[in-house]
Amino acid sequence: MKRLISSMIAASVLATGGAMAEPANPSDPEEFRQLMVDFYAERYPDVPFENYNLGVYAIDDDARSQWEGQMIFPATDEFVAKGETLWNEYRLPNGKPLSSCLGEAKGLRARYPYVNEKDGEVHSLGLDIINCQKNAGEDADKVWDPKNNYKKLANVLAYLASESAGMTNQVQADSEAAKKAYNRGKEAWFRRTGRLDNSCADCHQYHGGKYARAEHLHMNLGNTTHFPAFRYSKGSMFTLHKRMYGCVRDTGTIPPAQYSDYLRDLEYFMSYNDNGLELNGPNIRK
């Protein structure tokens, strides 16, 4: 906890241009989001805010031109098509489609993640699909959880992302429960864990944009808008939760499960910080 607070102090020092100041750690999500935006506006004054949903392609012209080539006939199309078929043809045990509990596909992704005031939990689109199937009494081995039917889950999420592409990311955080969730996610972002003793912020905020070996580290904005993402280095579709899980694991931490409270809080924090960016999933990343 002591470390977390000193992380915040470092964040505030950097955000205020190096002047030693009181630790700026506003609990109001919008105020804190503004700090996160200002942080990179200062580091990369030439990168327009709306470009942050391109990830490292916002700061690396060579990689960006390669990516633009990949997006002419994007590898994601195949997964979107498979996902659309699944979405239309899959039936819950009660004979109804998934839209019966989630709503229509158009704009569905753009309403996630959100905090339900009743249970105080962050709702992630992937988990809501899984819960929809479980609540309808689907057989455990047929549920599209990351363990048993990951590809189906990723494909449907790709299709749903495509049905919200071009919309603006507008995560709401008006309720008390939402503010609490945001601050839990913030804590997760700044918490140092694992063998490498690294926090998310260590790599993706303080050192975002720098190179680890030949790879750029992603920045603290635009982490969520483009998921699920086809990673051409792995040749497969990655959901946001699979990516977070892998990233945490690679710091030598025993990772929390996909769609656990911990990773959903983190998803909510990152998604809220991406407010104002255009949703551009599914997309292609290395």
Binding site: K2, R3, S6, S7, A10, R195, L196, D197, N198, D202, C203, Y206, H207, G252
Partner: peptide, 11 residues
């Protein structure tokens, strides 16, 4: 405590 360098011995 803010260094990003991992504690190779301690950990």
């Amino acid at each position: 405590a803010q260094t990003i360098m991992p504690p190779f011995g301690a950990h």
